[in-house]
Each structure stands twice: as structure tokens, then as C-alpha cells.
Design a protein around this nucleic acid. Structure first.
Lengths: 140, 140
DNA sequence: GTACGTGCAAATATTTTGCAGCAGT
DNA sequence: ACTGCTGCAAAATATTTGCACGTAC
């Protein structure tokens, strides 16, 4: 038997992590999630947060986003959608733009292999950073 | 004077790193670049490779790509283009698809702030992994 | 009862940085 | 000569993991 079916359990830790992620509009990093969850369950460990984020991602209940280099961010909304990333404060927000399935069709002609999905990120300045006079200047 | 102009020097190390990046079709990680450069200049240090990758990225001479979580990859082609990422072997390849500027226009209407650019990644199975019978199965 | 999950702490992996001497312009 | 750059090694960051005990099912 090459594959073993793991029967995941819904522990209190996993449940709280999921609730925190679903209840926030920002797309927090693992340690921000850790801090949030600790307010509800102070004894949780960071390792548990990472393990659960992995399990939830593999289950398709949340999604992992990685922009810039360093740390990952997580999104409690598992459905396919696009993101906006602020080049100044690095905030990540959902973009209210329909998913363009046509991109997969177009890409399939240009790629040697099988196209399954795509990921689109919009970059720029968020409203907050824009108001800090940054929008007066040209982009770097 | 809030900004200081740094006058970068073209050292032999920087030059070799740039040549290695421009001479490869793959999009290598920092330590792969390090190994390549060491064949030409064995005494170079990993810290120098990281410092130069940063400077070159800031200068717009190369670009940094980050998919999945862990390590960054670098692309010796600084012009705007899209990438294909294999979900199995994580190889990254250029996609021969024109840049769709219209996406910025569309996004500008859906975003609160200033849209400057976008990044598009196509996901799927590369030709090699496809041939390993993986294309017979449905995606996970 | 079984075996997945947890907290803790140590281990990994990746990237950054302080420092004294080196080298591009 | 000025100041950025280098190699080295240590530090900082982010994430993973071994282990013994705990708990969902």
C-alpha cells in the first residue's frame, strides 16, 4: 500500500486557527496567527500552529500565499481569487475581480506540459500608503 | 538629504553572478548560483552572492521570484514576463505569452489604491513530470 | 484503544550582518 | 583616496522535527 489515508482530527487548536483565519480580512503570517490564537488558547505552541497550517493547506481548507521572500501568509478563503500586494507596507488584500479562466487556455498553448491553474498578484500602493503622500511621487 | 546615492561598482564577483544568471534558462536558487559561481571563482562566499543578488535586484538587472514558501529563485531576464511552475518538481520556466497590460486597467477599478504592475504564474505539470505517467492521473 | 495531535525544545534551512582588510573608480 | 565590496563567521529569521504524553474518534 503506497498511500496511507490519514484521518485528521478536529482538535480545539485546529478549530481556533481556522476560526481566526476565517474571521480576519488581512492575510496574516504564521506568527501573527500564533499571537491571535494565544489570546484564546495561551498554551498553544508555535510548532502546532505551523503543523496545523500545513494540514489545513493540504486539505484545501485555507491557502498559503508567498510574496516577497521571507515568510508565508495564509488566507482563510480557499476559493480561487486574486490578491493585491502593497509594495510599501506589504499588506495583502483580496481583489474583487473575477477569475479569468481564459488565462489557462491561453497559457496551455504556450506551455510544454499540462496547465492546471494560475495565480495572479496585483502590485502597487494601497490606499493607506497612497495617502501618505507616496502617490505624489512616481514609482521607484 | 534624505536619500543617498550609492555608486555601485562592477566587481568581478558581481559580473560572474550576472553572467551565470544570464547564461541559464532555469531560474536558480541562491545556493545553486553559489555553486555555479564557485566553479569560476572558488573563493567567493555565500554572503557575497546574497548581497549581490540583492543589489542586482534593486538595480532592476535581474528579478527575484518567490513561489511556494522556502527559498527564492532568480531570473537573469529583468523584462516583464510570466512564469510556469511545475507542481511536482517545482521547476520554473518562462512562458511565451505576451504581457497583458489590460489586467492592470481592470485591476485598477477593483483596487483601492494605485495599481502599478502584476505578476502571473501558471501552475501545472512540466513536460518531464507529465511523461512520468503523472499526466494519466487527475491533479490532486 | 488506536494513532493522530500537542507542547516543548532542539534542529534545520535560509538569509543577513559585523568586521577588518581589499579593490573599483 | 574614498567608499563600496569581500570573505569569514556569527547572528537573525522562519520553519521543521523528535519525543513523551494527551486526546479525538
Amino acid at each position: 500500500m503506497p498511500f496511507k489515508l490519514i484521518r485528521h482530527r478536529m482538535t480545539r487548536q485546529r478549530q481556533i486557527i481556522l476560526e481566526v483565519l476565517r474571521g480576519t480580512g488581512v492575510h496574516p503570517t504564521a506568527d501573527v496567527i500564533y499571537e491571535q490564537v494565544r489570546k484564546i488558547m495561551p498554551q498553544i505552541s508555535l510548532g502546532t500552529v505551523y503543523r496545523n497550517l500545513r494540514v489545513l493547506t493540504e486539505n484545501g481548507e485555507i491557502q498559503e500565499l508567498s510574496y516577497g521572500s521571507s515568510h508565508s501568509r495564509f488566507d482563510g478563503n480557499p476559493s480561487d481569487h486574486y490578491h493585491f500586494v502593497c509594495r510599501e507596507c506589504h499588506a495583502v488584500a483580496d481583489v474583487n475581480l473575477p477569475v479569468m479562466n481564459k488565462i489557462n487556455t491561453l497559457a496551455a498553448e504556450a506551455v510544454n506540459g499540462r496547465v492546471e491553474s494560475h495565480r495572479l498578484e496585483i502590485y502597487g500602493l494601497c490606499a493607506g500608503c497612497c495617502n501618505n503622500n507616496l502617490c505624489a511621487k512616481d514609482p521607484d
